[in-house]
Amino acid sequence: MTVAPSALSRLRDEVDRALEVALDRRLPRLAGHHPALSPVADQLCAFVAGGKRIRPVLLLLGHAAADGDPDDVMGPALALELLHTFALAHDDVIDRADTRRGAPSVHRVFEAGHREAGWDGDAAAYGEAVAILLGDLAFVFADELFLTAAVSPVRLLSGLSHFTRLREEVMAGQYLDLWAATSRTTDRALSERIAAMKSGWYSVARPLEVGALLAGGDPELVAGLGRFGDPLGRAFQVRDDLLGMFGEEDETGKSTWGDLAEGKRTLLIAEAAERLAPADWKRLEATLGAPELDAGQAALARELLVDCGARDAAEAYVAEEVDTALAVLDTLSLPREVGEALRDLAGYLGTRSS
Rank of each mutant, 00 (worst) to 15 (best):
L208Q: 12
P153Q: 00
S199R: 02
A172P: 02
L83F: 10
A314N: 12
R234I: 15
E315W: 04
G211Q: 08
A215M: 02
F246P: 07
G217N: 03
A181V: 04
S183K: 06
G253N: 05
L260I: 04
A46C: 08
E315M: 13
E169H: 08
I94A: 02
F47H: 13
E169M: 10
R239L: 03
E249S: 01
A129V: 06
W257T: 11
E303I: 00
L88H: 03
P70R: 11
Y175E: 01
T182M: 02
E271K: 11
R265A: 09
T185K: 12
G102V: 08
T324V: 06
A314F: 09
T2G: 05
A301N: 06
E251D: 03
R53E: 07
R101P: 10
F146M: 11
G51R: 11
E249Q: 07
P35D: 07
I54E: 13
R108S: 09
P219R: 10
G173Q: 01
T99P: 02
A112F: 08
A4F: 10
A314G: 09
A301M: 02
V48P: 07
C308L: 10
V306H: 09
V93F: 03
S9V: 15
S354M: 01
W257M: 14
V93E: 09
L208H: 06
T256C: 05
G247N: 01
L147E: 09
G253R: 05
A172W: 03
A261Y: 01
T256E: 02
P5Q: 08
R96K: 12
A325E: 05
R12F: 11
L342P: 08
G224F: 05
T85P: 05
L288G: 12
